[in-house]
Amino acid sequence: MDNKRKYVIPGDVITTGPFRPEQNVVLDGNKIISTTVGITEIYDDSVRVIPLTGKYLPKINDLVIGKVVSHTSLSWELDINSCYVGFLPAQDVFGRDFSAHADELSSKLKTGDLVAARIANFDRTRDPLITIADRDLGKIDSGDLMKIAPSKVPRLIGKRGSMIQMIEEATNAMITIGQNGWVVVTSDNHEGLLKAKKAIQMVDEKAHIANLTDQVKEMLESRSES
């Protein structure tokens, strides 16, 4: 299935033949060409490139971490580390009976606050609509914010969450990963917090290395002995 992974840069021909082009590739005649710097993945009938660089492009249902940059009397604007600003309507926070006269937006979320949110709607014509009306979403009260490349988020999560579970278990930290590359780490114990942050940084720096999980594990264990 996972036919030999290849490192590619824009313009590289990945393969020829009857494959379906997926993310970050274009079809030119019968050649499939990479459009970004990344690692190829060839499945039974499809080809895609996992990018190693690039900005976050919102996708519906993504969990993101946003920072409030401003608000009007009806909505907040969130920096979601993308080329578009996130739009969080006030009804979402105050409920159906929100009134622009009676309710003051800054009483709930102030400029600079961090919010765990979900992309409710996004298409090319409008800025992404964001919601916090769900379990585990909403204002983040405590923790350390880390910024990693959005393209490396899948690596940090690992296959079925293996990488992140391992880091959480080893350090007793709570890690919230936004698909936009912003990560919040919370932990009661200072040492665990530092170690978790170090592990996340390591994933960000060495995302392209094959046996990264082992290396991170080694790092986590070596520190716990000392």
């Binding site: 313009g11 060409i33 970004t36 710097v37 660089t53 690039g54």
Partner: peptide
């Protein structure tokens, strides 16, 4: 541009 991750058909 490639370093910034801008999609490109070719260099």
């Amino acid at each position: 541009l490639a370093d910034a991750g801008i999609p490109m058909r070719d260099m």
